[in-house]
Structure formats: structure tokens, C-alpha cells
Amino acid sequence: MPGAGTGDTEQAAPGRSVSQMVTGAILSSDDIGDAEVRAWSALADRALEPNPFVRPEFVLSNAKASGEAAALLVVREGSHWLALLPVGVGKRWRRTPLPCLIPWLPELAYSATPLIDRDAPGPAIAGLLDLLAAERWSAALVLHPFDPTGPVGAALTTNLGLRSIAPYVYADFERAAIRRRPENTYLSESLSSAGRKKLRSRKRALGRELGGDLVVVDRSTEPAAWDAFLAMEHAGWKGEQGTALASDSRDAAFFRIMCGGMAAGGRLQLLALEGAGRTVAMQCNLVDGSSLYAFKVAYDEAFARFSPGALLEVEAIELFHDGLGQVELLDSCADPDNALVNRIWPDRRRLQTLVIPTGAPGARLIRPAMGVEVAVRRVIRARRAARAA
């Protein structure tokens, strides 16, 4: 595989109690065994910034279901893993005619923050950058979406500066989020009193329609509920557009395997909004460390006039504040332009598409190539806006 032939890089690990060297390599997810998976899981559990989308339960579920291996940037100290990031290896990225290490599974993985050992962040990030410096085929690593304000972002920025490496910020955007407050004031901050009253009215009306009070139930440990979510999502507009998970048998298989793995570790939340035995909306959330990611949502379109999806969003926020005390951040995983989520969720999380040049000969062309790509993107957007006007 291009990009996997960089060979191991080595460095000393200052301040570490063990004497082994820190090494870096690009591995294939197909080639790792049980011992490596255990080391990966242990790293995910002690990550400086936990990320469910790069845990083995997520990455290996997709590899198994799709039959397509992920390339893994790995930094190790003996059998002890210090850093990991799954990537794709592409001959180009978007309209940039240069080979790149590209975002892995961008349609499903809503965070590209690498796993960094919180006990050795310096050697971990240095090891990743050494891997990139040794790369001779891919001209850049593309991180998308990446939080530049978190602890990993801060450490990466510092280490890039020490090496005089200037990454290219291809995009800088925000998506809806919620940060914990001492009091449950989230909805009063985001919605007017009239808006909150309308949601309460719709909740009562939906209960009457169903013939029973609405309740929220966590069905994360029920395989039948995983299938129910797939069916509900596929029955709606996502199914019509072919973007539902069940539109592709491989994606559906991934979802089932992933749910099993995440549920076994207590990292899955599958909320169902129910009334009189009927489920009208579902939300699949991934919990890791102090963050919760709203991975996927679905609702029964037969009840669309009651806004069941919005009602479940409100109930999920209540559950976050009252029942998930360890969680400090809710990430909506929504498109930045999602009007419904932006209206209900009061905070925003800053994210970037960050392009980091490697040691490959083509890396010197990355910045001008990205500049052209951004300019072309602006022209296309302007023309679309003009046609829509």
C-alpha cells in the first residue's frame, strides 16, 4: 500500500521510566492481532482527548463489515501504544492532484482527533510528526474534522511550531454543541418562551395521538433495537436518498457490530422516544470520556407534524444534565447549517480541516495546491448561489 512503506521511525522518550525506544509505523488494520487490539484499547482508555471514532470498536467494525482495511498511524514504545490515527491513502484529495493521507471514513467518523497518551503527549505527538517527516509518497495528512482548541490541538500546534511546520487551514467552521452548566438553562438560552411552549404542546399532542405518555428509554443493550433504528432511518427521507445506513448492507453490518462493541464497554446510548408501546424517534449516541457524540438520529415520519425528532433532542438534553454527570460536552455531529439543531443547541464547537505537509517531495506543492482548491470552491459556491437567487 502506498504510504505504508515509510519504515519505522525511532526516538528516545524523554522523561519515561522505561528504556525502550519510541517507534512509529503505518500498519494495516488487517495485520494487527489480539495483543495489538488490547494495546489500542488501553490507549483509547487513557487518551488525552478520548475519541470514540478512532477506538478499535469503531474502526475494526467498519473494516470487518466493509472488507476494506484502514491504514493506522501508530506510535509505540515496545508493546505500549502512545498514539494512533486511522487514515485513508488516496492518490488525491478533492481537486488537489497530490497523493495524501486522507480522512478515514469521513461520512461516519465525526472527529479526526488522534489518540494521544495523556501520560506521554510529547513523545506521542513527536512520534506522529516523525512518521509524517519520513513519508515519501503522500504529500500531506488531512485531519477532518479536527478540534484545534482541545488539548490535542494545543499540543499539536506547539510541536508543529517547534519544527517550523506551517499547516494549511483548509476550512474553519462550527457545529452545534452543548457544554455543561451548573443549572439546566440550555433550552431557555436557545429557545424563546414561545418556542419552548410550542414543543411542550406538541409533546402533549403526540401523547394523545399515541394514547399514552411519552417516555425515553435507553435500549443500547438490545440488538433488536439496533435493527429497529436501522429500519426507522431507512423508512424516512434518508432511505429515499440512499444515505441511510441500511441503504448499504455493509453499513448496516458495521452499525450492528459497532453497537455491540460500544455497548459492551458502556459507550453506547440508544435512546427511544416511546408512547403506548410505539417508538417515534431514536437517537444513537457514542460516549467516551467526558464527551458524548450524537452519532445518528431517526424518527417516524408518520408523526412528523409533532416534531418527534426535536422532542427527543429536548429529552436527550434533559437526560444529559440529570443523568450523565461525567459528560461535559455534547457534540451534535450535525451539519453546520442544520437549522433544527442550531435552534435547540445553544453552544458551538470550533472545528477545522487541517492539512499538514509530510516529508514527501510533493509536500512543497501542498500550500499552492490548497490555495487553488479553495479558490475553485469559492467560485463554485458563488455560481450556485447566483443560480439559486
Rank of each mutant, 00 (worst) to 15 (best):
P2W: 01
G7S: 07
G15D: 14
T23H: 09
A25N: 11
L27C: 11
S28Y: 02
D34R: 08
A35Y: 00
A47C: 09
E49S: 12
P52V: 06
F53I: 04
V54L: 04
F58S: 05
S61G: 07
S61A: 15
K64H: 10
A65Q: 12
E68N: 13
A71T: 04
L73T: 01
H80K: 12
V87G: 05
V89R: 15
V89N: 13
R92Q: 14
P97T: 04
L98W: 04
L105Y: 01
P106G: 05
T113P: 06
L115M: 05
D117L: 02
P121N: 01
P123Y: 03
G127F: 02
G127H: 03
L132N: 09
L132V: 02
A133N: 06
A134S: 10
A139R: 08
L141K: 09
F146E: 13
P148A: 09
T149K: 12
V152R: 07
V152M: 03
G153P: 13
A154Q: 13
T158W: 02
T158F: 06
L160R: 05
L160C: 11
G161K: 01
G161A: 09
L162D: 15
S164T: 01
A166M: 05
P167G: 10
D172R: 12
D172K: 11
P182H: 08
N184A: 14
E189K: 06
E189Q: 15
S190T: 09
S192E: 09
S193P: 06
R196M: 14
K197T: 05
K197E: 13
S201T: 12
A205Q: 14
L206N: 12
G207K: 06
L210K: 12
G211P: 11
R219Q: 13
S220L: 04
A224R: 12
D227S: 13
A228E: 14
F229I: 06
A231L: 12
W237D: 14
T243P: 11
T243F: 02
L245I: 08
S247W: 05
S247L: 05
D248V: 03
D248H: 12
R256A: 09
G260L: 07
M262I: 01
M262S: 08
A263V: 05
A264W: 07
R267V: 02
E274Y: 00
A276N: 15
A276Q: 05
G277K: 08
T279K: 06
V280F: 03
C284D: 02
V287L: 12
G289I: 00
G289Y: 00
K296T: 04
D300M: 12
D300G: 14
D300H: 03
R305I: 11
R305V: 11
F306C: 13
F306H: 15
F320S: 08
L324S: 10
L330I: 14
L330F: 11
P336L: 08
D337T: 10
L340T: 13
P346V: 01
P346I: 01
Q352V: 14
L354W: 01
T358W: 06
T358V: 02
G359F: 02
P361V: 01
R364A: 15
R367N: 10
P368S: 11
V374T: 13
R377T: 06
R383A: 15
A385C: 03
A385P: 06
A386R: 13
A388C: 06
